[in-house]
Every structure is written in structure tokens, then in C-alpha cells.
Design a protein around this nucleic acid. Structure first.
Lengths: 111, 111
DNA sequence: GTGATACTTAGCCTTATGGAACACTATCGA
DNA sequence: TCGATAGTGTTCCATAAGGCTAAGTATCAC
């Protein structure tokens, strides 16, 4: 439970940067190397690498080095995890809306 | 487009802290006052207030002060926005999976 | 084996974040 | 009107985030 919280921290924190979101967008079209991914960004490679590391540590991306090239691929599971948190919230919210509606339609007042 | 990016930054950044996620969870059950929301947390009020401010600025929460009590409520729209980014990514990813599958079933090889 | 390529490591800088304490203002209730 | 309640503003602190340069390590291609 403690670990789960930290995991969500990382998942969402990773999404809070435009560079990283752009990398994920690119990777959803298919795997790519670091240099390749970095190319559109006006940023030094080491800075870019930090983003990749963060994406990997947070679980959004899986990487693998072959020879001198590190290839990055998207980690499907992360979507499911982030999504499930959002859905759970929505479910809570909708449950409440339903309750409110029942109150309204049955002519009672909330609170 | 520039503004959209900054908005997403804020939306996801807000979710990257366990205190703020807990506040949203609580608020999905219904509106509440600051003190009320702060009660479960072992944190000074001014510190807690910062989280509320951040949630408000990022668009997850709407607040309104009546008398000396500030009431917080969840902002439905934020869910839709966060969700739509995730869905768009998933769509890209699935489109690619479909293409790969067509390649496979038509006996061709990718790359 | 040498030059180019593709990262990596290390260190530095600036700003943002998440927490604290303390003092303060503005209601509300008796 | 006076004490308690509910929030605010301000300042401070330690650490993390996001960027940089410079220098290092493997591979690869010849």
C-alpha cells in the first residue's frame, strides 16, 4: 500500500513534463533509440537522458541496450495503472452523483 | 497549444503527491472545508493549504469562501482532461498494435 | 587500431516543492 | 465584546527537478 502510493507518485510525476509526454507520444508509435528520441528537442543529451531514466524508473518505459544503442519501448502496464486510479476516482464521484440524483428524484434534500 | 501543455503539466503534477490524491479521493465523496480535509493529515495547516492552492490552480478543485469557512469541491472537468490525454496515447498505441497485427496476419515482417 | 558514434558519469547551477514556525485577520457564538 | 474557530501571509529550510558543460567509456566501421 505504501509502495503503491510511491508508484503512483512516480507515474503521475513522469507525466507532468512536456518533454516526457512527447517522448511517450513518440514511443506509442514504436520503439526508438535515445539519440533518435532526443533529436526533436533543443536539449543537451545528458539532460534528455535524465528524462528517459525518470520514465524508466517510474515504469512508463522499458529500455534495453544492444551494442552501443539503447532502445526504448513503451510499457503498456503503466497506462493501466494510471488509468485505474483515475477510473476509481470517477467511480467514487459518480456514485455520489447517483445518490444525489436519487435524493432529488425522491423529493428529499441533501444535507 | 502552448497553454494546453502547461495545463497538462499542472494536472499531472497535482496528482504526483499522495496528500493531494487523498484530498481528491475525499472530495469525490462530496465538498468539504479546509480544516475538515486537513484533519487526517499530520501536517501544519499552512503546509496543507499549499496543496489545496495547487489543486485549485491546476484545475482539480474549485473553492469558495463563505464567512470564515472555505469549502472545496472537485472539478469534474479535470478528470476529463487528464483522461483524454491518456486515451489519446492509448489510441496511438493501439493503432500501432493493429498495424503490427495486420503485418503478422498477412505474413509480412515489421521493420 | 583509429576515428566516429552513442551513450554515460560527474559536477554545477537555478528554481520549484513540500514541509515547518510564527504571527495575523476575520468570523462566529455566547 | 471577547474567546474560540478557520483560515492566511510570511519567512525559512532541505531536498528534488531540470537544465548545462566537460570528460569518459564502449562499440562499430574501416
Amino acid at each position: 500500500m505504501e509502495h503503491y502510493r510511491a508508484r503512483l507518485d512516480g507515474l503521475f510525476q513522469a507525466l507532468s513534463d512536456p518533454t516526457r509526454r512527447a517522448v511517450l507520444r513518440q514511443l506509442s508509435k514504436g520503439p526508438a533509440s535515445i539519440t533518435n528520441l532526443a533529436q526533436p528537442f533543443d536539449m543537451a543529451l545528458p539532460s534528455f537522458l535524465k528524462h528517459i531514466r525518470l520514465l524508466e524508473e517510474s515504469g512508463w518505459v522499458r529500455t534495453r541496450k544492444e551494442g552501443r544503442v539503447r532502445t526504448c519501448a513503451i510499457e503498456k502496464k503503466a497506462f493501466a495503472e494510471a488509468d485505474s486510479w483515475l477510473s476509481a476516482q470517477r467511480a467514487l464521484w459518480e456514485a455520489r452523483t447517483d445518490r444525489l440524483e436519487r435524493f432529488v428524484t425522491s423529493g428529499k434534500k441533501d444535507q
